[in-house]
Simulated scan of single mutants.
Amino acid sequence: MSNVVETVKQVVTPILKEHSFYLFDVEFVKENKSWYLRVYIDKPDGITIDDCVLVSDELSEKLDAMDPDPIPQAYFLEVSSPGAERPLRNEEELKQAVGSYIHVSLYKNLNGSKTFEGTLQSVDDDQLVMKNEKWGEPDTVTIPRDLVAKSRLAIQF
């Protein structure tokens, strides 16, 4: 199914560039008995429902016009934002998140905790530095990169 994902990326990229959006991810998955083609898009000031409809309509039209059909089985097309609590999957996304409120899960305890939430202050090859706000009293915590299991944007309450 990676051919489907690669084909969709090639087809959707010019559409996104035309509207100043960017591609976050594409997945083609089977859930129960149905196939889902999910395209996650974004732009600096956030994606709206109208943006998703626009991309969905244009992408659907282009995919339907292709011969041979790149996706021969029936599927549902979903175009959406990656969400307010999207994962930070790589170095570039971590660096873009500097100044943002994030959630970090660790492989093992650091200072008695396996999770931290706060504002990411800096990132380098060896560590993340964040203003930890999980327990209400802000302090700065330095997290070695080799302890980080997952990180994502978070909503601050």
Rank of each mutant, 00 (worst) to 15 (best):
L37H: 08
D64A: 01
S100G: 14
L120P: 02
L59I: 11
E91P: 07
V39Q: 05
I47H: 02
S81H: 04
K43S: 08
E31R: 12
H103M: 07
E78M: 03
V29F: 08
L110T: 12
L37E: 02
D126N: 15
D67S: 04
L77G: 01
Q96L: 15
C52D: 00
S80H: 13
P82A: 03
L106Y: 09
G99I: 00
V53I: 15
Q73H: 14
I41A: 00
K30H: 11
K95D: 04
T119M: 11
L77W: 05
G118C: 08
V79D: 00
Y107K: 06
P82N: 12
P82S: 07
S81P: 01
V39K: 06
L110W: 12
A74M: 07
S100C: 10
L110E: 07
Q96C: 14
Q73G: 15
K108G: 07
N109E: 15
T119G: 05
P70H: 05
F116R: 00
Y75H: 00
L120S: 04
T115A: 08
I71H: 01
V53D: 14
L59H: 01
G46K: 03
N90E: 07
S105Y: 13
A65N: 10
F116S: 04
S113A: 15
D126S: 13
D124Y: 06
V104M: 10
D45V: 01
L120Y: 07
A84L: 13
E93F: 10
V123D: 13
D50C: 03
I71L: 00
Q127N: 12
M66D: 10
K108F: 04
K30R: 13
K108R: 03
R89Q: 11
G112R: 10
G83E: 01
L106W: 11
K114M: 15
A65I: 00
T119L: 12
L88D: 10
T119K: 11
I71P: 01
P87R: 13
T48R: 02
D64Q: 11
N111A: 15
C52R: 03
L77H: 09
W35V: 03
N90Q: 05
P82T: 09
